[in-house]
Design a protein around this nucleic acid. Structure first.
Lengths: 228, 228
DNA sequence: CGTGAGTTTGATTCGAATCAATGGAAGTGG
DNA sequence: CCACTTCCATTGATTCGAATCAAACTCACG
């Protein structure tokens, strides 16, 4: 069963903002809430997919494994965001593994019900197209970064992205443990650590655990653009 | 103006297969044909986008550039395929550069007209969702390969993908010059060459210019799974 | 406290890039 | 039709960035 509080949060997801109250209600008739412990796995790659999810609280990591068991974090999902929506159109199998980064509460939305809503509500379909297109764009940028940028450039770029438009002195909180961020950036934890201390030594960042301050975002941007 | 022949080919693109004759006709009222010489650039990253394209003949490469001018081929587009459709939802700017690999004929489809069609035709919207989702999946796999696989594994995987389900002795034709394929795979031409000769020396492939034969796809798959 | 996961730091190795030359194949123009 | 240029691919020697291996260190937590 869903609580009213959940519904409030759900409405905030851009994907659902176009739905009227009764449309949303219909979609949620088949929805259910669930909780995950930190580290708990939600689904595995290749598993048949009957649903996608909205994160109400906590955060998730989506990742792939190599044959040798090495892990690459594809995406970090924060509260308020949806994930695995595109699976409806992918032959009904999850293309990644999903696990909770922290204790999490999710809403599970049934695929068939969602497709019904998509078919009947053109606005929803447009929102969905916009949402998937954004993700596509993100991934293209990840591919570019992995292929054309050094570890240092990717780290700097990531910090700047987290800082957003915020001006000087902006403080950033890493959305996960450092080794998870490292994997997200396609580098090893050791390398991530070295890059961060390197940046600190040049006074380009202030480092305090997961909290990082960017005293001079412009200088950091310059460093990224010039550096190897 | 469009020729009838073009229309035949257009209908083959999965995106348009759901359209009735008059819907397609309406979409194509605002469409136009154009030709490109080999190597000619169609659009640059960041350029405002009023249209997307269908390749009627020839092939295209979509690529990104680094600050230093290095190039990463994101995708190779063959005749019959569409590209840059998702741009409608991306703030109207192309996220990549596009240039012809060989002499090419394209059909240019106006964005505003296309959005109109999307809004009025739910089937088209669903097809579009499916199409973009596939590309998303592809990119996730590229990210995985770039992060978790060695150069050799990526090359072997690419050859196997080109060969498709075809059984033993299948012959594959590289869809572009080798340095372009190398960039697509995120490696340098020299490395690509070395990997191919390595595979040849182990009799895992037969090499004749752009033609590559896979005498034993299973063995190649095994090599990829075991090798570094 | 002690235990263990997570992070940092150091030494070394390794894969792929870079730098450098050579070898063809394709196309151009005399 | 053959030099000549040019582009592309291959091969070799070397360098370099990041991974790996190994050890210390730091906390959060039982």
């Amino acid at each position: 069963m869903l609580k009213d509080i959940d519904l409030q949060l759900l409405r905030k997801a851009p994907l659902f903002s176009s739905l009227g109250p009764q449309e949303l209600g219909q979609l949620l008739d088949s929805a259910s809430a669930l909780s995950l412990q930190a580290g708990e796995q939600l689904f595995a790659e290749g598993e048949p997919a009957q649903a996608f999810y909205v994160v109400i609280e906590g955060s998730m990591r989506l990742y792939k494994l190599s044959a040798e068991g090495n892990e690459k974090v594809i995406e970090l999902i924060q509260a308020g965001e949806t994930f695995a929506e595109a699976v409806v159109f992918l032959g009904g199998r999850y293309p990644v593994h999903a696990a909770a980064l922290s204790p999490a509460r999710l809403i599970r939305i049934d695929n068939t019900e969602f497709v019904r809503a998509l078919r009947s509500n053109n606005n929803l379909a447009m929102k969905m197209l916009a949402s998937i297109s954004m993700r596509l764009h993100q991934l293209v940028n990840d591919v570019r970064a992995l292929s054309l940028e050094s570890a240092g450039q990717r780290v700097a770029g990531y910090l700047l992205e987290l800082a957003g438009e915020a001006g000087a002195g902006s403080e950033v909180l890493l959305p996960a443990q450092k080794h998870v961020i490292a994997s997200r950036l396609g580098i090893k934890p050791e390398t991530f650590s070295r890059v961060l201390t390197g940046l600190r030594e040049q006074n380009l960042i202030d480092l305090e655990g997961q909290h990082i301050r960017l005293p001079d975002a412009a200088a950091l941007r310059r460093w990224r653009d010039n550096h190897r």
